[in-house]
Each structure stands twice: as C-alpha cells, then as structure tokens.
C-alpha cells in the first residue's frame, strides 16, 4: 500500500473517532439552547426559530439547583482537600520513609492497603462517624478527604522520597536546619513533580466525586455532581432543558482546566497509573 493512501485512511479513521468523541458534548451544548419540548423529540437537530429558547434553560437550571452555590462548594472542597492532602501526606511520607521502625512500616502498609478497598465497604460507618464528630460540613469533609486521599498520596510520595539522596537532607541538618525547615526548604521543593501529580489526581477525583459528599454533606451542601443528580431525583419528571444547561456548566470548567494544564494533567495521570 503506498504511503499517501495509508495516511489518508488513517486520517479518516482518526477524524471519525474524534467526531465520535466530541459529538456527545456537542449534542448537550445545542440542546441546552432548545426549549425542553424539543430536546427529547429531536435531540440531534440544531435549534431553529421555533425550538430556540435562548438562556431560558440556564436561568431555570440555576434557580432549581442553586448551581452557583454548588460551584462554590465544589471549588472550596476540592481546593481545600487538595492542599491538605499534598501538605500532610508529603510530610507523613517523609517521616515514615526516613524514620524506620515497626510503627512506620505498619503505617506504610496500612496506607497502601487502603487503596484497594472500595468505598462501599466503609461508606455507612464513615458517614455515621462524620455525623457524630460534626464533620458534616464543607470544612469537616476536607478531613475525610485527607483520610481517603492519603493512601495513594503517601504511597506516591514515599516512592519518590526513596530516590532522593539522603545526603542533601543530612547536609541541611548539619547546617542547623530543624526537621520542619529541612522538609520545606530542601525536601519539598525536590518533590514538586510528584506534588503536581498528586494534586491533579486528587483534584480530578474530588471535583467529580458524588457518593462521598452526598452521604456526608449532601442534604445541606450540594456539590456540582449532587446538584445534577438532584435535578433528576427531586422533580418527578426531569426538566431536560435545565439538565442540559447544567451539564454544560459542569463541563465547561473541566475543559478550561484541561486545556490550560494539559501537559501536567496527562503526565500526572500516566505517572499515577504506572505507580498505582
């Protein structure tokens, strides 16, 4: 087969696939501007003079779900949890890697073990405990996320710390740095690539997480996934117009985040997969 023909075939295949990947998002986008009567009956046609609804769906969706508040909760919880996870897991990982005794190796295995346990195993008791300890609010849930996120994060940080020569830490300590200063001035800067990976993996998980926040804070604070699910649950027949508009609002921040940080995201996800 000659090369041009082969390339033409490959390109057609790629374009076909790319179209299939973009199509669903495109359909949701066009339907978000159609009046709800036309969404179920003609989902694949562009809005016309008759079916065009302007921003009506967006307005009713924002009202029904309180989406702006949800966006705020999701952002606050994701950012807060990611900062807590990166900070505390890296500190813990350094400690249990550098101080070797029975307790630290037990802790290491406990963290690794937690990675394989499905959420359903702990969801009931965890949400009851969160309730008893007054952790059922956007600040308390950060502690829960630290607990759940620490498994993978401690594991990844520990793997990296083992590759750092211990001599540079000792040099800092001989120069009179205490443990905290050694960690933040010497160790943490070296771990930057791992910290970015850990931050991205946890951000993707927490931003999209549904069941954990639903069980812990769902009745008072609706994060974006909870708000979207609520749209179906709360109102007998689903308002498809509002649903489409809210799906668009849920996807747009993700796409912006992705296009801006693509390089780090893809690298981070591959690194996470290879180690996890």
């Amino acid at each position: 087969m000659n090369k041009q023909l082969r390339n033409a075939l490959l390109y057609s295949l790629l374009i076909l696939f790319a179209a299939a990947f973009v199509f669903p998002v495109f359909v949701v986008l066009i339907n978000s501007f159609k009046s709800k009567l036309y969404i179920s009956s003609e989902p694949f046609t562009l809005p016309d003079a008759e079916s065009f609804a302007g921003l009506e769906n967006y307005i009713s969706g924002l009202e029904k779900t309180g989406f702006l508040a949800s966006f705020g909760y999701s952002l606050f919880i994701t950012v807060g949890s990611v900062i807590a996870i990166v900070l505390f897991s890296s500190m813990t990982a350094w400690y249990i890697t550098r101080v070797r005794n029975k307790l630290t190796s037990l802790l290491y295995y406990a963290f690794v073990f937690s990675m394989i346990v499905p959420f359903q195993m702990v969801m009931f008791s965890m949400s009851k405990i969160a309730n008893i300890l007054y952790l059922d609010n956007p600040i308390g849930i950060i502690l829960i996320y630290l607990g759940f996120g620490s498994g993978l994060s401690v594991f990844m940080f520990s793997g990296f710390i083992r590759s750092i020569p211990i001599e540079i830490e000792e040099a800092a300590m001989i120069d009179g740095c205490g443990s905290l200063r050694t960690f933040f001035l010497v160790v943490f800067p070296v771990m930057r690539p791992t910290a970015i990976t850990v931050a991205i993996l946890n951000a993707m998980w927490i931003w999209n997480d549904y069941l954990l926040p639903y069980l812990v804070i769902g009745s008072d604070y609706k994060t974006i996934p909870i708000a979207i699910q609520y749209l179906r649950g709360g109102y007998g027949s689903v308002d498809m117009g509002a649903m489409m508009a809210m799906l668009v609002l849920a996807i747009v921040p993700i796409i912006i985040f992705y296009l801006r940080g693509q390089k780090y995201i893809i690298k981070g996800v591959v690194a996470g997969a290879v180690k996890g």
Binding site: S114, M126, L146
Partner: peptide, 10 residues
C-alpha cells in the same frame, strides 16, 4: 484523618 475516614469505619 486516616483513622476517622478509613481505618475505624473499615
């Protein structure tokens, strides 16, 4: 956090 969110519930 690990004990509260994971180990004890487990």
């Amino acid at each position: 956090a690990f004990l509260i969110a994971f180990a004890i519930p487990f």
